[in-house]
Amino acid sequence: MNSIELFAGAGGLAMGIANAGFDHRALVEWNPDACQTIRENHLRYSNGLPGCVLYEGDARTIDYASLAEEGVAIVSGGPPCQPFSLGGKHAGYDDTRDMFPEAVRSIREIHPQAFIFENVKGLLRESFASYLEYIILQLSYPDLARSEGEEWEKHLARLERHHTAGARPDEFAYNVVFRLLNAANYGVPQKRERVFIVGFRRDLGIEWAFPEPTHSEDALLRSKWITGEYWERHGLAMPVVPAKLAARLQRIATNGLGLDKLPWLTVRDAIGDLPDPQANPRNGARDHVFIPGARTYAGHTGSPIDEPSKTLKAGDHGVPGGENMIAMPDGAVRYFTVREAARMQTFPDDYVFHGSWGEIMRQLGNAVPVRLAQVVAAHVHAHLPAP
């Protein structure tokens, strides 16, 4: 099944979709360093086939219809998230960086069987509620385009009237759902929450729901503080149980919580086999170089090594934030190396990143975890008709 990826970044979403069985015919990305990262890993996006083309440039200049000549099962992408980011200026629909209009145009011109778009948790902020509805309705009825000079609120009202009037049998439209997913619940060693928007072309008559979580925090707490399996697996003595967890652990033990899921993966689970980059700078691991200068202050405390990491962020001016540090049990902190951060995002160890340290960490901070993308995309793939 052919696919097209917009706003590909470093390729996390695109790789997960390829791993799920789709063959990318085109990737679209404007950042030169991210494009070079994709070039250096190009065989990962089309099951080893040479047919995947990288378009380096502004998505607004792409003729999407020309990309659909061979038939496209799915369009995917992460429209730039700065307008809705919790760390940004929250300009939203007034921000020229909002690329959701381009996502809608791609659906209008390509007519794929399905699409997968993802964005930051901030998209669900109450102040953006009307605009989120606007996004969903545009994706539901992509042919009902915004007229030149029409204010978005007027277009929203027109979409609402069309939606409540009921769909016509011959109408080109999509059934669209969205949900906030925590990557840790799907086997990613990172508490990263992202909004996924998934749509299926209505004429296909597909019934679909988001995949059920496979991992849980209760299961991790059980393995750490009830069975002790977590510490035994890592060859460590079990620490004293934190007093603040006593009541919750009692509920977990009494009610059998966490028995139906795998434990959340922690930073230690993800990087425990890598050598200490500070103690062993010539460790031979790709991109596993110690970066000095990490320090803590209010709101900048790092990710405890025995929990999933905090959400990796792109940072400002090439400097990652406190979420990009490991916090050791003794209180020491250091920055994740590139390889460690890549593992937090479930990129394979032989994946090559291009750019300075700050630029690579920006690419990683903006990426979708490969494993999360694969889980969602595989669930979509399983429901599409065979080609």
Results as ranks from 00 to 15, higher is better:
V376Y: 01
A26L: 08
L259E: 15
W264I: 08
N280M: 07
G302Q: 15
E102A: 06
A10K: 01
P304A: 15
Y64L: 08
N2F: 00
L364A: 04
H155L: 07
H215Y: 09
G318L: 08
Y335D: 04
V120M: 05
R25E: 11
E217W: 05
A173H: 10
D306M: 13
T164R: 13
R125Q: 15
P304K: 13
D330Y: 11
P277V: 00
I197H: 04
Y141L: 14
A243C: 04
K313W: 11
G51M: 14
E153M: 09
I17G: 01
A65P: 00
G71L: 07
C52L: 06
P292H: 07
A377T: 05
L159Y: 08
R192A: 10
R251Q: 15
F128Y: 07
L262A: 12
L312M: 12
L372Y: 04
Q278W: 14
V289G: 02
R202E: 15
H300K: 10
K154D: 15
A145M: 07
T266P: 03
H381G: 02
H288F: 00
A165P: 04
C52S: 09
V198Y: 02
R192L: 13
T301F: 08
R286N: 00
Y230T: 13
P277H: 02
V176Q: 03
G315F: 06
V368S: 00
P263Y: 13
I206K: 05
P189D: 14
L221I: 12
V75L: 14
V198W: 00
P213K: 07
H155I: 04
N280S: 07
N31A: 06
G258E: 14
Y55A: 00
S66P: 00
I38L: 15
P239M: 15
A294T: 06
R39L: 12
C81W: 03
G87V: 02
S76I: 09
A382M: 06
H300E: 14
H162R: 07
G71R: 07
D273P: 00
S216D: 11
R201M: 11
F128V: 03
P348W: 05
Q113M: 12
R334F: 01
E160H: 05
P142L: 06
G21I: 08
E102M: 05
R334Y: 02
D63G: 08
R192F: 11
G358H: 04
S3W: 03
W231E: 15
A237E: 15
P80V: 00
W225V: 11
P239S: 14
L274N: 01
V375Y: 02
G205V: 12
S309M: 09
H111I: 12
H234K: 10
N31Y: 09
K313A: 15
S356A: 13
T296H: 03
L43I: 11
G71P: 03
G166L: 06
L86E: 12
Q190W: 05
V120T: 10
